[in-house]
Nucleic acid binder design. Sequence first.
DNA 1: CCATTGACTTAAG
DNA 2: CCTTAAGCCAATG
Length: 115
Amino acid sequence: MKISDKNKDFFALVYEVVKQIPKGRVTNYGAIANYLGTKRSSRMVGWAMNASHIYKEIPAHRVVNRQGLLTGKMHFDYPTEMEELLMSEGIEVINDQIVNFQIVFWDPEVELAIA
DNA sequence: CCATTGACTTAAG
DNA sequence: CCTTAAGCCAATG
């Protein structure tokens, strides 16, 4: 998939990255924004996530803030849905905080290796 | 069109 | 550890 495809909306680009997050791994808003070349616009990534619920198949639960905190849990159907999904993938979550966050962290800029 | 808000991040006090 | 401030930009009223 070519990221240089400018015909797509910023949101669509975010979705494509999020879809590629491996199961059992997570990333943060800033990393995605950085990968898309707009690292200061991490808020837009959050916006994209907010809109992603209409596009199914977007594992928004694998995107947390840079502390590994489930800041967006309240935007799911139920506040506990996010951590339940993460737990079901083998990610340990305690008090809305992902345990071993830096271990399960998935950086698109590294994993997708920008050319 | 202007003001406010927000699933963010970094820096500074 | 806490609070502010600033930068970022789409969406909403």
